[in-house]
Design a protein around this nucleic acid. Structure first.
Length: 577
DNA sequence: CTATCGGTTAGAGGT
DNA sequence: ACCTCTCCACCGATAG
């Protein structure tokens, strides 16, 4: 349909000279109108009709109603609470130096880009603000006591009893929890490890099967606000449960380097009137986002890796956060550091960490970097970098080790999933004779958030930016281009820039040959999804207490009942049990 | 090839 | 009820 009006000049009388008067006719939709205004009115009426007939008005009304109905529930107030604001004295009125006649020193901005600028002119030079420690780390790398780690969180979070509460929990309560743990780990064989040690989490089979498993899954709920607490101030990157089968202690690491530890059942165990913390204890252990958090199998040490390039280890017996690894550039002053020469520049950081389960101590781990590097660190004796190799041109998001103990999967921004033989990776990119070669690979079109081997090793589970969850069968046996995944689940993984990316995560045990994984979801109402290794959606857990997207989720590794924890973008942790 | 931009996305906290 | 802040997540396009 034409919406253009046509304008015609009609000459009424050719002969009459003074009859040169123009008479205009305004055409619209085949109708003629004698005045412009009438034509416009007709056009407006047409537009109104189109709007009404399109149904958009009804649709809008329906949406408005729906929006009214599902009003956002208020976020849980359990957990961290800010110290009350102290009203500050009004600042003295600023005096203009220009008005008071002071002369500028004749400086000007020489070069400005990306938020940085150089000041030139005169003798006045402004030194760019230098961070106090390498890569804005929390300190020079020395040990951090529990009290210091609490104090680093700042006055906003530290109240009268905060330090004492945290010290009591870390020293007494946590030690009790560790001592209370049954000894599950089998004796370790001497010599070079051939398979992943069956720690409490390592692929142990659980008694729950068939109907019991389903009813266990069905019983999971997030209805009560006691299931939610603010554990860290900012967005959650790393999430981990303490491996104790009897107690629920959840740890979360946030964007700013905070570590929050939530003793979930403190209320049940203690007289609630005495609890001022809701069981939440906050520390700051790293200077940048905590990219990964993990407990060793025996629950004695907690490792945190950070964007600031450091890895800290909290040992329950030593009661300090020890910097066990940190990246440094090739400046001579760092020559003696373990991480000498592992920092590739200003936009290089540790993207993920994986505890190497072949060694029970938890003293060996893999690190992946934003520059596509993978390192293996071994702290058992003096501390060494077993290897440090560039495996990708772009950031590597996750590293996963197959239970066979030698097939490693990497995934990241290069839009590829790749497998490698760790036994064949030489120690250093610079000195090795040949660069490492992938055993197998698959192209995913877009970046891969994560790729994890299932506890049995049968499946490699990927979460991708092309909105898929995929299960690759026996990926450790393929070479060359991998076969397309048999199971591919459509899943909205567009979390945008304010939420942590989704990373579908396995339960570390098996359920008589059945395996489970958990993943967050953008669906409304908000929910957490559980799938099995066939790709079947077993449950969407939703409830009144789950009001925000749980972008990082994991299972409790050892509880005989299923427990899921999820972390959201405001530092809150939700427990489904 | 590198840097930068705009678009997308969700939630809390303050007024 | 609105407005503001988040600012290395990632994609695709564009400029230099």
């Amino acid at each position: 349909m034409s919406t253009r009006s046509s304008r015609r000049k009609v000459i009424k009388n050719d002969d009459a000279q003074e009859e040169e008067e123009e008479q205009q006719v305004f055409m619209f939709n085949g109708q003629s109108y004698s005045t412009y205004q009438e034509m416009v009115e007709a056009k407006r009426q047409r537009n109104r009709d189109v709007l009404v007939s399109s149904g958009l008005l009804e649709a809008k009304a329906a949406m408005d109603n729906a929006a009214m109905e599902q009003k956002r529930a208020a976020a849980s107030s359990r957990g961290l609470k800010r110290a009350a604001k102290v009203p500050s004295a009004p600042l003295p009125r600023r005096k203009s130096s220009r008005l008071s006649g002071e002369k500028a020193p004749g400086i000007y901005i020489e070069n400005e880009s990306a938020g940085k600028f150089e000041i030139a002119g005169g003798s006045y030079m402004v030194e760019p603000e230098k961070p106090e420690f390498y890569n804005r780390r929390i300190n020079d790398g020395s040990d951090l006591t529990v009290a210091e780690a609490v104090e680093h969180t700042g006055s906003k979070w530290v109240k009268d009893n905060t330090v004492a509460n945290a010290e009591y929990f870390m020293k007494t309560a946590l030690q009790d929890i560790v001592e209370d743990m049954p000894i599950i780990s089998p004796k370790k064989k001497k010599g070079s490890p051939t398979s992943v040690a069956k720690g409490p989490a390592g692929g142990a089979s659980y008694g729950i099967t068939g109907k019991d498993l389903q009813s266990n899954i069905d019983s999971l709920s997030v209805d009560d606000e006691t299931y939610v607490a603010k554990v860290v101030p900012d967005r959650i990157y790393g999430l981990a449960c303490h491996p104790s089968p009897n107690k629920l202690v959840v740890c979360a690491g946030d964007k700013k380097g905070h570590l929050g530890i939530w003793n979930v059942d403190q209320y049940a165990a203690n007289d609630s009137s005495k609890c001022t913390t809701d069981g939440v204890h906050l520390f700051k252990t790293n200077g940048g986002a905590i990219s990964s958090l993990a407990w060793n199998a025996s629950g004695t040490s907690l490792l945190s890796s950070s964007y600031d390039g450091s890895v800290r280890l909290f040992d329950v017996n030593k009661q300090v956060f020890e910097e066990v690894f940190a990246t440094y550039d090739t400046d001579d002053q760092y020559k003696d550091k373990l991480g000498y020469g592992t920092d590739d520049g200003y936009n290089s950081w540790i993207q993920s960490m994986l505890i190497d389960q072949r060694y029970e101590s938890g003293k060996c781990f893999f690190l992946s970097t934003s520059e596509g590097g993978v390192m293996h660190i071994d702290l058992r004796s003096k501390g060494k970098v077993t290897f440090n190799q560039v495996l990708s041109e772009r950031k590597i998001n996750t590293v996963s080790l197959h239970p066979n103990g030698h097939t490693m999967a990497t995934a990241g921004l290069s839009a590829m999933v790749q497998t490698w033989d760790v036994r064949k990776i030489q120690s250093n990119s610079k000195t090795s004779t040949k660069p490492p070669k992938a055993i197998a690979w698959q192209h995913t079109g877009r970046s891969v958030n994560s790729a994890y081997f299932s506890p049995s090793g049968k499946h490699l589970l990927t979460t991708t930016q092309s909105n898929k969850l995929e299960l690759l069968e026996n990926a450790h046996e393929s070479s060359g281009l991998m076969k397309q995944a048999k199971t591919s689940i459509r899943h909205d993984n567009q979390t945008g820039r304010w939420l942590s990316t989704f990373m579908a995560n396995w339960h570390p045990g098996t359920f008589s040959n059945r395996e489970l994984f958990v993943v967050g979801s953008m669906k409304k109402p908000r929910c957490i999804e559980i799938f099995d290794d066939k790709g079947e959606l077993l449950r969407e857990i939703q409830g009144d207490a789950l009001t925000a997207v749980a972008s990082r989720c994991c299972f409790h590794p050892n509880s005989s009942k299923l427990i899921i924890v999820g972390g959201n973008s405001s530092g809150r942790v939700t427990v489904a049990r």
